[in-house]
Amino acid sequence: MGRIVLEQVTKSFGETQVIPPLDLTIEDGEFAVFVGPSGCGKSTLLRLIAGLEDTTSGKVIIDGEDVTQVSPSKRGLAMVFQTYALYPHMTVRKNIAFPMRMAGIPEDEQNKKIAAAAESLNLTDYLDRKPGQLSGGQRQRVAIGRAIVRDPSAFLFDEPLSNLDAALRVGMRLEISEMHERMKTTMIYVTHDQVEAMTMANKIVVLQAGNIEQVGSPLDLYREPRNLFVAGFIGSPKMNFIEGDEAAKHGAHTIGIRPEHIEVSSDAGTWSGVVGVSEHLGSDTFFHVHDTGLAETITVRAGGEVSFKHGDRIHLTPRQDVIHKFGPDGLRL
């Protein structure tokens, strides 16, 4: 079990309120991802749930029990830190054993669990090494192993992959998703990488300055962003926003169109502009188009084989069914 509910939780550091009153429910077995720009309070929120920070007001409820005043170790949660926070003087085996040792679990049971965790995380060969002798990815796995053996009711991850290189990040992302499929334990995952958010989450929580902007499944957020902030934050490259006359034609203050929803052509289209930088990714090409009279730049995605040169005139046609309309207050119409 691991149903986590936040009720009117706030957090202030001195005078500054970092988290204004906030309500959130994370269902048992869910993979919830907190995303948002740097400094928006993601880590703070996670630490409030873990109990490493005290709430200024409001309640944290885990499985129906109010744990606001309960010490972190009694909440039954396990956390994986961005810097791994492994104990440098202990071997991998002792690191993984540490929470069990603190809980007074008998030695043979400890050994069984260590063996199982090491097996599932590919750490068996490294059990007698010190953290300093491991690579970043291996350290991250040890940190996860240390969390697994506690059988927590929920896992908390604070940007666990941000210190890894791109290839390893993809691998670990899959491993963590796989682990969630297998264990069905609640996981809360903080990241500012929206690719991680989109690929891993059942539920994404988009935060800005401590406020929840929208909660929903990745595709909900992609298809129906509630406001301009979420629309701009989810999706890569970023959605194009167009204001003025063109928006008025659609009866909106601002319209948004994703780069992948614009057709390009060399001879005809609704809009036209001049190609600036083009980014060739192989499978796709992103063109940054200027002088359209709509916005500073319009980004469009085309197939990898499409090729325009810098300065070419290009014609653009948006798909009418996926144009997002927003009112003057930034909310979706």
């Binding site: 949660l77 830190f81 810097t83 104990y87 540490f98 240390r146 506690r150």
Partner: peptide
């Protein structure tokens, strides 16, 4: 962060001193 990890792992103040 090591200390915080130890707190979550259930280490008492003495254990934190002794082991970290």
């Amino acid at each position: 962060q090591q200390k915080e990890a130890a707190i979550l792992d259930g280490a008492s103040a003495w254990s934190q001193f002794r082991f970290l």
